[in-house]
Nucleic acid binder design. Structure first.
Lengths: 210, 210
DNA sequence: AATTCGAGTGAACACCTGTTCACTAAACTT
DNA sequence: AAGTTTAGTGAACAGGTGTTCACTCGAATT
């Protein structure tokens, strides 16, 4: 992507590296990342355990790489949301829509983040916390440009962003462990998310007018 | 407590049972409950591994017992809050105060719940989810009796309760892994919690007036 | 064409895990 | 006082764990 090289050997290496990452992500779906052993990941990736060390120096190391990969998805989501012209007119509706759609499309990633945020090894937890804070700040920048919000104090915008992200987290959790093919429940979550965001915005208007 | 009996042998049994529970709770503080082995718990409780089975048939079983014990604390909190006359006049301030104080006093319990809510074995996760739903309903009942809220629809009250509990969860997490003796940060969290609850209430007023 | 490099192998290691089972000894029952 | 119950013991087990190390053999470099 960035460096085009790809010398057929590096290419193969990258392939098994991703196989390891995918295997770890999938295996951690039912029991949690911490329960997944180096040997299980290696086997699922079709590699002998000692080969693992050619790519990561420990499971913690792999965990950090996974965090990074997952947040790339999140960043893509916020980037797309900014480009969508809908967002300027109907932030709430569009946000709820984008949230549910994105989470549905990358369930494993979101499940991983919301799960390992509390349980992961200390470095993993720290990395997620940091990425999440970063995400709040990025969202604050986006929000600050919106029509009705551009006059707010930056403190208030930041708090709004925090509440939105917290709401996003909570709803992402719900979507992430949703049974397949229940579009009714999905619609219900979308609706709840919408109402809650609306509530927050309304609360802020009232708050700022006093 | 309930059955007074206590035949000196039952007494002793209860003693080591609690020792096992306490050991499990403490050991799960740094790495998470799922990382704690039956042998570690037994050793920390001063018992040989095979004795464990006299009290629980598996670690999952112990986990469920721990969930039950932790939520007893939560229930006590909401019960006390109801008795406090302050709450009727200044729900928000009193709630924020009680929240921080209670969580600070039972860090381990809250840390356990907020951690195992996502990571625990499936039965443990299910138990927590159930208890949490129950908690929302209980809170809704309390809120419905409050001066300005008694006229709301039960749906709205329930949503308010959900938002409050979510807020509580998020702030409990923050308090739970707070470094010791940082009363400034503690005050900051209390303040945030207060503002966020206020925001929610204001939003609801506005919401309902349209 | 000869040499170096390195991703992947397979066996061995020391250790920790949950579970079993025959046992002891002290508290209970008769 | 004799007999039963049971919380706790200690050794053994089969199996999974992370890490090591000498190795292969094809691709990359010279």
């Amino acid at each position: 992507m960035s460096t085009m090289a790809a010398s057929a050997r590096q290419q193969q290496k990258e392939r098994t590296r991703e196989a390891l990452l995918n295997a770890a992500l999938e295996l951690s779906l039912d029991k949690g990342f911490a329960q997944v052993s180096l040997r299980q990941v290696s086997q699922a990736a079709g590699v002998v355990p000692s080969a693992f060390y050619r790519h990561f120096e420990s499971m913690d190391d792999l965990g950090l790489a996974l965090v990074e990969r997952c947040f790339a998805t999140l960043r893509a989501m916020i980037r797309d949301a900014q480009r969508d012209p809908e967002v300027f007119d109907h932030i709430i509706d569009a946000s709820a829509e984008i949230l549910v759609a994105t989470v549905k499309g990358s369930k494993a990633d979101f499940a991983f983040v919301s799960r390992e945020r509390m349980t992961g090894s200390e470095p993993v937890r720290e990395a997620i916390k940091h990425e999440l804070d970063l995400f709040v700040s990025e969202l604050a920048v986006v929000l600050a440009r919106l029509p009705n919000i551009e006059s707010w104090s930056s403190d208030d915008v930041h708090m709004l962003a925090r509440l939105f992200v917290r709401n996003m987290q909570a709803n992402a959790e719900l979507v992430a462990d949703l049974p397949e093919g229940r579009s009714d429940l999905e619609e219900q979550i979308r609706d709840h998310a919408r109402r809650e965001m609306l509530l927050i915005v309304l609360g802020f208007k009232e708050w700022r007018s006093t």
